[in-house]
Design a protein around this nucleic acid. Structure first.
Lengths: 124, 124
DNA sequence: TTCTCTTTTGAGAATAGTTACTAATACGGA
DNA sequence: TCCGTATTAGTAACTATTCTCAAAAGAGAA
């Protein structure tokens, strides 16, 4: 656990905004001005493999990262692209239903809602 | 509706394999050897705006395209990356439940299952 | 058909996000 | 402390996609 890795983890856990890799990079740079973007990518990958953070491969062009690891869903704003958590029971019911009818071995699911966030609704 | 656009649409509707843009390009090239990759991307974009095809922005690095436009979900194989359809009622119930509790204006949802396809299971 | 205007094309350059490479540095255990 | 491994910063390379632009193809009017 290097200094860089610790800072990346801490900054991510501090936020609930599901930042992209370069947003994490900007924040980490305030504390470690010489950190490189490659280090941020590498450590985000390692931390998500260890299960300390979550890598979100949802719609949009960039990956996002989440300091919360419990199973939960997200809403993406179609206008500004921001992402929020949705407090909701996991989809185990649906997954189990699928297990009965599909030839696939079902491991999990990924559910994302699309909408307009309160801020963008206001500005309409 | 140019020759190129028609061929791209036909090839996509012929398949149920949710091809990536370069897979569509390969197929279109068999019928129009001089077609360019840019043309394929441009037309896939236009066709999905018209609602003639569906653009899938699911997990993974590449976008995929679907000749079926009805609302349905997908399973992605975690090993080989292939994608299949899941016959399943749309998530309107869940979406409506969320409409009551979220500040977002909910427009839709995107549900993807993760699993292992029959082929990969066999090869284990 | 022919003329004109708009759209689309092919080819290649440009871009964005991410990953890989490498020499130098930091870390951790004996 | 020394030594071997892991990690770093910096940069180059890569991949998927989008953009640019001159040339070609359509589409509609005469």
């Amino acid at each position: 656990m290097t200094q860089q890795r610790r800072v990346i983890l801490e900054e991510l856990q501090k936020l609930d905004s599901h930042p992209t890799a370069d947003e994490v990079y900007e924040r980490a740079r305030r504390r470690l001005p010489r950190i490189s973007l490659g280090t941020v990518y590498r450590n985000l990958e390692i931390l998500s493999e260890c299960g300390l953070i979550q890598k979100l491969e949802l719609g949009g062009t960039q990956k996002r990262f989440d300091g919360r690891v419990e199973n939960h869903c997200h809403v993406r704003c179609i206008r500004c692209g921001c992402i929020s958590d949705v407090p909701m029971a996991p989809l185990t019911t649906i997954e189990n239903r699928l297990r009965g009818t599909s030839d696939y071995e079902i491991i999990g699911s990924r559910l994302e809602f699309i909408g307009v966030c309160p801020q963008c609704k206001k500005e309409h």
